[in-house]
Design a protein around this nucleic acid. Structure first.
Lengths: 231, 231
DNA sequence: CTTGTCGGATTGTTCAACAATCCGATACCT
DNA sequence: AGGTATCGGATTGTTGAACAATCCGACAAG
């Protein structure tokens, strides 16, 4: 039983800023975002206002608002009087993504070796991806790869950089969707991620930086090779 | 006169991707963005849909679309059923900004010392700011300061990083607007920018990195001091 | 001085209409 | 055939009005 009947104000400030419910427009954006990132709507496809409004039972205006939300995430492109289209990633887009990755991903390495928990989390992600690879679930391997690199950057501790990088990884996923054979692409990089964790576990930041650099160069080359031949 | 009547296709690809005309919603967003960044609408102020719609002669729906655009630039905050408000920057926001600046601004230093044009451009910006300072135009000094650091990051060559950093600097300008005495804030940093350009001109990247680090720490401290006392 | 309730104000969303623009088809010209 | 002009349907852009949902301050009650 409560032994202190003395009234005391609850400790405020400790409360977790309430979770901002979603409006209809945001819900629509969420649905579309999911469909796109899962590849159910392919890059290049047009999103027609009326069609989506009808399919989801909302008004055109609400759909338009959701388009505006997705637009700034660079998942869709908006062409005046033409409509919005799921973004297609070309060679230039890939090169830009890797310029950025090379710049940002090394930034968190120092923090990572100093944090046992972060190291353990990274190890777990790679381990999970390795299991997925054995069962041939390359979809999950791809997801794990993205999650792994997301954490690398998150370790740098900048909310601005992290949220921007999240957007970039969504773009990257978009690029993956345009490819045929995903196994050939992901398999070598899974091994590199493993090497990377091990180096970090040993505190070898310089070695990790090199390995990461090689990873990125190899990944860019591979992606470019596939994209330029298919496109 | 043209000496070759042989028909030849014009060289495409060299054309500068046409400048994407603006829709009404974007125009509205532009007006609001300008008003905000010039301090004519203060941080914390609410933007009422009907009021703005009436003032600009557009419909509420269009205004709402423009709010969505500004929201992703983090110039305004959107609270469900309450409205949109010009973003206020608190101590946490400032600390986050400087974590990010410390991470990103050093990234382009190496590229800068290798480019005579970039160095010249930076020098010109500081020179202009120095002139503005003499005439007591601290507004322009602030603008120059922001432009200077924008270029530092742009030199890193990543479109993702650059566009994100542009947004961050818009936030920073917002923070400046909340302050009273701008001279005391900008004057010391103008001198630091001069030192920085000189170091870069001499190719002293390591020295520049140190100077930059000191600049950022001093700026953060100064901003925090003012914000915590006024708020 | 806290708690409950009411009502105006503002936002969220829908709907229908029309203007502006795009794009493919068709017709026309050489 | 190859190029150009024109037309019309389809889609987007924007408006204005309407109503529901929600917020917030004021006032009343305990």
């Amino acid at each position: 039983m409560p032994s202190a009947p003395v009234p005391v104000d609850a400790d405020l400030g400790a409360l977790p800023a309430l979770p901002r419910r979603a409006s209809t427009a945001e819900a629509v954006a969420g649905v579309l975002r999911t469909q796109i990132s899962q590849g159910r709507i392919l890059p290049g496809a047009q999103l027609r206002e009326e069609q989506i409004a009808a399919a989801l039972g909302v008004s055109r205006n609400t759909v338009r608002e959701s388009f505006r939300l997705l637009g700034h995430e660079r998942l869709v492109e908006h062409a005046l009087h033409k409509g919005v289209f799921v973004r297609t990633i070309g060679p230039d887009g890939i090169r830009e993504m890797y310029v950025t990755r090379r710049l940002l991903e090394p930034l968190g390495l120092g923090e990572i070796v100093a944090s046992r928990e972060t190291l353990a989390a990274l190890d777990a992600i790679v381990a999970e991806a390795e299991q997925a690879a054995e069962t041939g679930d390359w979809e999950s391997v791809g997801t794990g790869d993205i999650e792994f690199h997301r954490r690398l950057v998150a370790a740098a501790g900048s909310v601005h950089v992290s949220s921007m990088f999240d957007g970039l990884l969504a773009e990257l996923r978009l690029a993956f969707l345009q490819l045929p054979d995903r196994e050939a692409l992901h398999e070598p990089f899974l091994r590199r991620n493993r090497t990377l964790v091990d180096l970090l576990g040993r505190g070898d930041v310089k070695g990790a930086r090199n390995e990461l650099e090689e990873y990125l160069t190899a990944a860019e080359t591979a992606l470019l090779a596939v994209v330029t031949t298919t496109a």
